[in-house]
Design a protein around this nucleic acid. Structure first.
Length: 624
RNA sequence: GCUGGAAUAGCGCAGUCGGUAGCGCAACUGAUUCGUAAUCAGUAGGUCGGGGGUUCAAGUCCCCCUUCCAGCUCCA
């Protein structure tokens, strides 16, 4: 039995044990629903007569232990539908599940001892004693709905961590703790990278330190894309409804767009708007404002409604469409880092991982069908380079034609074949996942998932073929034979959203970024104020060579200065005293340890910094 | 959107039975002039997320709202 099967077998079994324990503790009126396994254990859904709180966890765990010790046999039994309904009389969820089973399905039930029975396909352990070594712990309790439908029964879901033995559980709990410590929301505040305010939910304020990093990411992306023939554009952030009607966003995406409403029926010219406060002061006078003709809010027709763009595509289409194009010009690559807005339902935001305002390292490439393969190979080589620089691995997933596809099925087939060929070449057949029918309605796509330092996966990059927008916008190019043809558009992003990517790398590096990416790369600590002059000289030399340094010229003691820069996780902290000044050297305190490099010649130090910047080094140079 | 939790000084937190808010760090002032992660002393800092209600009295109790967090929206 492979490890996965093994895990599955007794996570499943433990779910039944938990259900049995809860039944025993909370009484026979407890309704039990389903108990599937998940990544780190399993859960079970109940309707209980009283709430479960954290202080109740030990009692449940203890009862589970006791049940396991009873060494009860697990007996499998095949039953008819009527027998099953009889067995689960009073259990409404089980009744529903049984009724929903296909007529020809074999119904099996499992007895755990004499007194507990659950509807289940199995397989399970044969006797509870096989679970003696299993390590488990109740993780949490949360609300859920029967069949995920908020209109149906509200249930209590109890999560269980479940592992083969104590060590595996301990390892996992360590990982959970580690993830908690790496939380980018915490580190973002500590490192002064970004903040949020309730006046702009889901829209980050980028603080000086965070914005430096952001700019470095952009700089790096631009440098690579320049080499690959990309040309950057910028386009309107707020566009008229007319544009969204053409692109299809008005039909498909309107609920995710921030509107600048058309005002007819809202304010009219010469309307008097009372109750406008002059300021937020308590005694601020109220005044009445009169809408004047020709002002921003005056009498807009419905068609004048504007919306902030949730995607760059329509503007890229317009940019292409401005003039005629020859096949000789293709591919045309318009990259774009504009600000996007997507309205999310409340409760869907999560730090930088899911925001309402962000930028992408976006690009729309216009190609002939014959160029798709080569262009995508080039995009993948860019992804290799960028992800490689961050020291993360990634895997590709191909999503193919969905049922509600648009366009010509022959074009789809050719496009999917082309994508498969590229992926086969690159990762070998079967070296990537295929999600049948998961593509966008306008074209198939390749998603790139990166794996972080804790083994968690994140979807960052995406490469999507689009046959639909070129059609909607009536895009053409003139082919060699003089005929007008429609280009294919490739949408792609490598970081994905810069915001999300930064959130991921904060957690990946635990805030200790590679030198080239650090907000400040060198913290300069003059020991006494009489060393400030030498410090200023070095600060100037570093600035001249494009190295970001911060200097503490205050007269506080050096330990405090070092501590402050350590908290910011500056990669190098250089300490300057009599010795360094007289010998024209620096003493480097390395990040992540108390290791020091004493008496490094100034020239050598500058060189170390420049090398790491030039090479986008992942690791800090730790010896001279 | 739904379920549950949270919001008190810049940050991390305490605040009991409803009686007009406190600690640590940071900040500021002064002293100290220091060799690798917290020198000493003093000072200042609050509409207790917003609005409404109950009460002689609300950080505390009730209602509404906002934001954030953990989940759900993964079908034996």
């Amino acid at each position: 039995m492979d490890k996965e099967m093994y895990l599955s077998l007794y996570r499943h079994s433990l779910a039944h044990i938990m259900a049995k324990a809860v039944m025993e503790l909370y009484g026979k009126d407890t309704q039990i629903a389903i108990g599937p396994q998940i990544d780190d254990g399993c859960y079970y859904d109940f309707v209980l007569t009283q709430p479960v709180k954290e202080e109740d966890f030990p009692a449940i765990e203890e009862r589970m232990r006791e049940i396991i010790k009873r060494r009860e046999d697990w007996t499998r039994k095949e039953v008819t539908r009527d027998e099953a309904l009889e067995i689960f009389a009073g259990q409404k969820f089980k009744q529903e599940l049984i009724r929903d089973l296909p007529a020809d399905e074999t119904i099996t039930v499992y007895y755990t001892g004499e007194d507990f029975v659950d509807l289940c396909r199995g397989p399970h352990v044969e006797n509870s004693q096989e679970l003696m070594n299993a390590a488990y712990k109740i993780k949490s309790v949360s609300g859920a709905y029967w069949r995920g439908d908020e209109h149906r029964d509200r249930m209590t879901r109890i999560y269980l961590y479940a592992f083969p033995d104590k060590n595996a559980l301990k390892e996992h709990l360590k990982l959970v703790q580690e993830a908690l410590e790496r939380d980018h929301k915490k580190l973002g505040a500590q490192l002064e990278l970004f903040m949020f305010d309730e006046t702009a939910p889901g829209m980050p304020y980028w603080l000086p330190r965070g914005w430096r990093m952001y700019q470095e990411l952009l700089k790096y992306s631009r440098a690579i894309q320049d080499r690959h023939g990309y040309t950057e554009i910028a386009a309107p952030l707020v566009n008229n409804k007319k544009l969204w009607l053409i692109s299809g966003h008005w039909a498909h995406y309107i609920n995710n767009m921030f509107m600048v409403p058309g005002v007819s029926g809202f304010f009219k010219a010469d309307d008097e708007i009372p109750g406008i406060l002059e300021s937020l002061a308590e005694d601020a006078p109220e005044k009445t404002v009169q809408m004047q003709a020709k002002t921003a809010l005056y009498n807009r027709e419905e068609l004048d409604t504007m919306a902030a763009k949730p995607m760059n595509c329509p503007n890229a289409m317009m940019t292409y469409k401005r003039t005629v194009h020859s096949y000789k010009e293709l591919p045309i690559r318009y990259s774009e880092y504009d600000v996007l807005h997507r309205k999310e339902k409340s409760g869907q935001m999560n730090g930088l991982f899911r925001v309402q305002e962000f930028r992408q390292d976006d690009d729309h490439t216009f190609v002939m069908e014959s160029q798709i393969e080569q262009e995508i190979a080039d995009i993948i080589s860019i992804a290799d380079e960028i992800y490689g620089t961050f020291g993360v691995t990634y895997r590709a997933e191909l999503s193919t034609r969905p049922e509600d596809f648009m366009g010509d099925i022959e074009v789809w087939n050719r496009a999917e074949a082309a994508l498969k060929k590229i992926l086969d070449n690159k990762y070998g057949e079967g070296g990537y996942e295929i999600n049948e029918g998961d593509g966008a309605f306008y074209g198939p796509k390749i998603d790139l998932q990166i794996k972080d330092a804790l083994g968690r996966e994140w979807q960052c990059g995406t490469i999507q073929l689009d046959f639909q927008l070129p059609h909607n916008f009536g895009l053409t190019y003139q082919a060699q034979d003089g005929s007008m043809q429609m280009p294919v558009v490739i949408h792609r992003a490598i970081y994905g959203s810069l915001e999300r990517f930064i959130g991921i790398i904060i957690e990946n590096y635990k805030g200790a970024f590679p030198f080239w990416l650090s907000p400040y790369q060198v913290g300069i600590v003059p020991i006494r104020t009489e060393h400030n002059e030498y410090a200023a000289e070095i600060a100037d030399l570093l600035a001249q060579r494009g190295v970001r340094a911060e200097t503490d010229y205050s007269d506080s003691n050096m330990k405090e200065k070092i501590k402050r820069f350590k908290n910011y996780k500056d990669p190098y902290i250089i300490v300057l005293g009599d010795k360094e000044r007289d010998e024209r050297t620096v003493s480097i305190n390395l990040r992540g340890s108390n290791k020091q490099l004493q008496g490094v010649p100034l020239e050598r130090f500058l060189e170390m910094c420049e090398t790491m910047n030039r090479e986008h080094s992942l690791n800090l140079i730790e010896n001279v």
